[in-house]
């Protein structure tokens, strides 16, 4: 994967850039409003961009779908099929769930269901490999790996 540089654009948003395998410099300007610009830099003057594509949030979704979001889900399905009997699931912790405020250690989710919670997504951040003292908040999404039966049990423990 090419190295992506992040550049702050005060008052506008943020820009990410990388050089393609073919040697072309490509950037994405992400406006705070959700609009995106896809830019390609001038080969003769690396300071300026020549091709600029203006994308609405919907356009961005369509383009990223075309470029590879589908590949990600295909890859995940492939993983599930390859590892016989093992599945990945995303479990959302709703407000009012018994799990809100309990830590991973207290809940003993792995010993009770045989399922490992490998990551927790909270808002826009992801907590990779959460420790036993990690406490759930409402709205957390637990990424769990285990047998389909275990995952169903975990769904019952976290989801209600």
């Amino acid at each position: 994967m090419p190295e992506v540089t992040e550049i702050q654009l005060p008052g506008v948003g943020v820009r990410h850039e990388f050089t393609t395998a073919g040697g072309e410099r490509v950037g994405v300007v992400s406006h705070r409003t959700g609009r995106r610009e896809l830019v390609v830099y001038d080969r003769h003057d690396p300071d300026r961009c020549t091709t600029v594509l203006h994308l609405s949030p919907d356009d961005t979704r369509a383009l990223s779908e075309l470029l590879g979001a589908t590949q990600v889900s295909e890859a995940l399905i492939a993983v599930q099929q390859r590892v016989e009997g093992l599945a990945i699931d995303w479990v959302t912790i709703p407000p009012g769930s018994r799990a809100v405020g309990t830590s991973l250690g207290e809940g003993q989710f792995r010993s009770r269901t045989g399922v490992s919670i490998v990551a927790v997504a909270r808002g826009s951040t992801t907590i990779a490999a959460p420790g036993p003292d990690h406490r759930f908040e409402a709205g957390d999404v637990a990424v769990a790996v285990g047998t389909p039966d275990g995952l169903a049990q975990l769904q019952g423990l976290l989801g209600s």
Partner: peptide, 23 residues
């Protein structure tokens, strides 16, 4: 900022410096 957006310069390398100076 209108000039930068209209002339499609948000991707340019000098643009962060311009915006920073405004700050």
């Amino acid at each position: 900022s209108k000039v930068l957006a209209d002339l499609d310069r948000l991707g340019n390398r000098e643009t962060p410096a311009v915006l920073n100076l405004l700050v």
